[in-house]
C-alpha cells in the first residue's frame, strides 16, 4: 500500500517546490536525448518517485534540477528559483544525496563532515553545533559521530550522506538511490528518516530508486521514465490500479501437497489456474481477467475433494510488476 497523496486529502494547494517543464538534455548531437521532454512537479510534503530502468535519464534529471548538469531545453524551478540562473539562491533551500554514499569525505568523521558542509552553507558557531547534533540524532548516528566515515558500515555512511543533505534544513531533498546496496535493515532506517522528513517537516522529496517495494511504500506520486521519455505519471495507487490489472490475482492456498489425481481434476475443471506446489502448501492462482464467480466454483470443488483451505483471496499487483509491465522490452529493469 502506498503512502496517501496529500494533494487528494483536501489540503490547500501548496506552492510547488520543484517544477520541471519540457526538460530536454542532449549530451551528443547525434545521440538520443538523455532526457526527452519531461515535465513534473514536486509539492511540499510529497515523496515523488522518479523511476526507470538503468539509463532512463533519472540521474541526469536530478542533476539538471540541481544545476550540476546544464539543460539543453526546458525550464527548472528549484524551491521557486529558476535554475541554473539563480542556482546559488535555490541551493540554499535544497539538499541532495547522489548515488548512495558519495558526496562526503570518508576520511572525516560524520560530525566533521557536517561541520564542514554546514560552514560552507553559512551555519556557524552555536547554531552549527546545535544543528549538527540535531541532524546526527535524526539519522541515528549520535553515538558514532566522531569515528572516521570510512570505518562505518555502508548503511551508516549513507546516513552521513543523508545528514549532510538535510543539515541546513532544506525545503527540497533530491535523493538519488539513497538505499543503494543497503541491507533490509539499513534501507528501512533510511526509509524511516525520509518518512519523518516529509510527514513531520513537510519537505518535498524527489526520490530515484530501483527498489520498487521501497518506492511503493514511500512515494505519494511516481513518474516512470524510459529512454529519457515519460511513460506514465500519477499517484502511486492510481498507477498500480490502472496498469496492474494483469497482475492482480486470485489465490487459493491449500494445506499440504495435493495428490496427482485430485490435482488433475482441479486443472481439468479450471484450466486457466496455475498451480504452485511447495512442501507444505499448494497454491492455485489466476488472473483477475477471469470471472470472479470462478472462485466460488473452485472453493466448492476443493471442499468436495476434502482439501483444507489455508487462505483464499485476492492479491493486488505490486509496483514492481507494474514497472516491469510498463518498461518491458524498453530497457533492463534492475
Amino acid at each position: 500500500m502506498s503512502a496517501p497523496d496529500p494533494a487528494n486529502e483536501g489540503l490547500p494547494r501548496l506552492p510547488a517546490a520543484t517544477v520541471v517543464s519540457d526538460l530536454v538534455k542532449s549530451y551528443r548531437p547525434n545521440r538520443p536525448n538523455a532526457v526527452d521532454d519531461i515535465s513534473f512537479e514536486v509539492p511540499p510534503g510529497v515523496v515523488f518517485g522518479l523511476l526507470g530502468p538503468n539509463g532512463a535519464g533519472k540521474t541526469t534529471t536530478v542533476k539538471v534540477i540541481l544545476g550540476l548538469v546544464l539543460p539543453t531545453r526546458g525550464t527548472v524551478r528549484l524551491a521557486g528559483y529558476e535554475m541554473p540562473r539563480w542556482q546559488h539562491k535555490a541551493l540554499r533551500h535544497a539538499g541532495a544525496v547522489l548515488e548512495g554514499a558519495r558526496n562526503i569525505y570518508w576520511r572525516l568523521s560524520a560530525r566533521a563532515n557536517l561541520e564542514y558542509f554546514g560552514a560552507l552553507r553559512g551555519l556557524r558557531g552555536k547554531s552549527l553545533a546545535l544543528r549538527t547534533q540535531e541532524t546526527l540524532d535524526l539519522v541515528g548516528l549520535a553515538d558514532r559521530a566522531d569515528e572516521e566515515t570510512r570505518l562505518l558500515s555502508r548503511g551508516m555512511q549513507q546516513k552521513v550522506a543523508l545528514a549532510v543533505a538535510v543539515l541546513h534544513d532544506p525545503d527540497v531533498l533530491l535523493l538519488d538511490e539513497p538505499t543503494l546496496g543497503l541491507d533490509v535493515h539499513a534501507a528501512r532506517a533510511i526509509e524511516s528518516v525520509i518518512r519523518k522528513l516529509t510527514e513531520e517537516q513537510r519537505k518535498a522529496v524527489l526520490l530515484t530508486t530501483h527498489q520498487m517495494a521501497l518506492a511503493q511504500r514511500l512515494c505519494h506520486r511516481i513518474l516512470v521514465v524510459n529512454e529519457g521519455r515519460k511513460v506514465v505519471e500519477g499517484a502511486t495507487d492510481e498507477v498500480i490500479q490502472q496498469f496492474g490489472g494483469h497482475h492482480r490475482t486470485t489465490e487459493i492456498r491449500l494445506a499440504g501437497a495435493v495428490d496427482h489425481g485430485t490435482l488433475a481434476r482441479l486443472c481439468e475443471a479450471f484450466p486457466f489456474a496455475s498451480v504452485t506446489t511447495e512442501t507444505e502448501t499448494t497454491t492455485l492462482s489466476w488472473s483477475d481477467t477471469h470471472p470472479q464467480q470462478k472462485l466460488l466454483e473452485l472453493l466448492n470443488l476443493v471442499d468436495g475433494e476434502g482439501l483444507s483451505i489455508l487462505h483464499a483471496g485476492q492479491r493486488e499487483a505490486t509496483l514492481e510488476e507494474v514497472f516491469v509491465h510498463l518498461t518491458a522490452g524498453r530497457g533492463s529493469p534492475a
Partner: peptide, 18 residues
C-alpha cells in the same frame, strides 16, 4: 571521482570561491 566535488557545488557558495 569521489563525488564530493558535486557536494561542494551544492553548497551554493560558487565553485570558484570554494
Amino acid at each position: 571521482r569521489t563525488g564530493t566535488l558535486e557536494q561542494l557545488f551544492l553548497t551554493g557558495r560558487g565553485p570558484g570561491l570554494v
